[in-house]
Amino acid sequence: MTKKAKILVIDDSEVVLAQVKARLLREGYELVTTTQTVGAARLMLGCELVVIDYHMPGMDGAEVLASLRHAARAIGAAPLFYLYTSDPKIAPLYSRHGFDGAFTAKGDHEALVTQVAAALRMARLKALSRRS
């Protein structure tokens, strides 16, 4: 059931995006990728998860997140926002920056697959918990 989720990945490197997209597509996810933070909001429609690189030219991930959250509210979307970083110092601070969670070990695509699955499972568990 997690295989059909639509995921938006935002990173300033096309190469990184191509690799992430190829790996997650193999898992059955629907992928949308962009290097542009401007206009990324319209790509969020239908997405359950938005994965954001923390370091991008012109603004950092926290700034991108703030603008995307604002845009998400405007369009009535409520995806999960996850930080994607290999920096062990940044990862634990995700909540301080307003992210719902952090994917670590950036570059290890096998690790990314299991982490994405866990994040989507956790969202469903929390929804289940709220219902009960």
């Binding site: 996850y82 982490q115 956790m122 568990l125 918990s129 009960s132």
Partner: peptide
């Protein structure tokens, strides 16, 4: 990975919920 650990902890907490 913290997110995997957190997700499983959540599952263990919920699975024994009577409802």
């Amino acid at each position: 990975a913290p997110v995997e650990r957190e997700a499983f902890s959540e599952w263990v907490a919920i699975v024994f919920d009577a409802e």
